[in-house]
Amino acid sequence: MKLLISMQAYNVQKLIFHMNTRPAVYERYGSDRDALFADYKLSAAEQDYIETMNVGALYEMGVQPQLLAPFAGRENIAWLDYIKGMENPGPLREKED
């Protein structure tokens, strides 16, 4: 078995990469979220998983954990809660209205 290139979850990973590394993008996540999600062409499920910090579901979609851990830290998810969320997919917080 070979490990091959996978463009799975490309857009949602790209958004998390940019939020992790570009302060202006992360700021838009707080102030202009719907437009940001649209710019990155996120599916409804991807949007929901990010907003509820369902890191386990994002991981199962193929998102690299090295993207998820720093994003979770920035979103004030404690390390042990993050690991539990990776082990048992589900929302780590409620979606904001």
């Binding site: 386990g56 991981y59 954990p65 090295q66 998820l68 851990a69 993050y82 690991i83 990776m86 082990e87």
Partner: peptide, 9 residues
């Protein structure tokens, strides 16, 4: 060896 930031961390 390690399973960084993953379920087997």
């Amino acid at each position: 060896s390690h399973w960084p930031a993953a379920p087997l961390s």
